[in-house]
């Protein structure tokens, strides 16, 4: 099957709606199809990858650990928009440490999060062939 550049655009906070959780399920399947996968976290989507998520008070399963597993599925291009963080009073320190292991470099751990400016994010979006938004 052909390989296409897929981008999954995440603009919503987790738990308030099912979009973040069900978006992750699509991302994992796309990896199984060996597609060129990128994720974009903009606007409230940045809350999906904050660290220290604690769902004990809301009766929902905490699925934030799934983002940490993405590297094992070779999903390692997680573009995070700086302006979206700044607008929300956040910095990269508020985000989970998401990494992948590079098979070609003796399994060296590398960061999956790629911090980009708004205009750089626009450039990345413009390169995609299939954009699915959640």
């Amino acid at each position: 099957m052909a390989t296409k550049k897929f981008m999954f655009v995440n603009r919503k906070a987790p738990y308030g709606t099912a979009y973040a959780l069900e978006s992750l399920e699509v991302v994992l399947i796309s990896a199984a199809f060996e597609q060129d996968v990128s994720l974009a976290f903009i606007d409230d989507g940045v809350y999906q990858i904050t660290k220290g998520q604690d769902t004990t008070g809301i009766g929902q399963k905490n699925f934030s650990n799934t983002y940490k597993a993405l590297g094992d599925y070779e999903v390692n291009k997680l573009y995070v928009e700086k302006e979206s963080l700044e607008e929300r009073g956040l910095t990269q320190d508020d985000l989970m440490d998401l990494v992948w292991e590079d098979e070609d470099e003796d399994w060296t751990e590398k960061p999956s999060i790629i911090m980009v400016s708004r205009s750089e994010m626009a450039d990345v979006m413009a390169e995609q062939e299939v954009t699915l938004s959640f």
């Binding site: 099957m1 296409k4 897929f6 699509v26 399947i29 796309s30 199984a32 199809f33 597609q35 699915l132």
Partner: peptide
């Protein structure tokens, strides 16, 4: 399954 969505994205000219 969800694979049907990904396959759709691959096979179609426009999604």
């Amino acid at each position: 399954g969800l694979g049907q969505l990904i396959e759709g994205g691959i096979e179609a000219d426009r999604t």
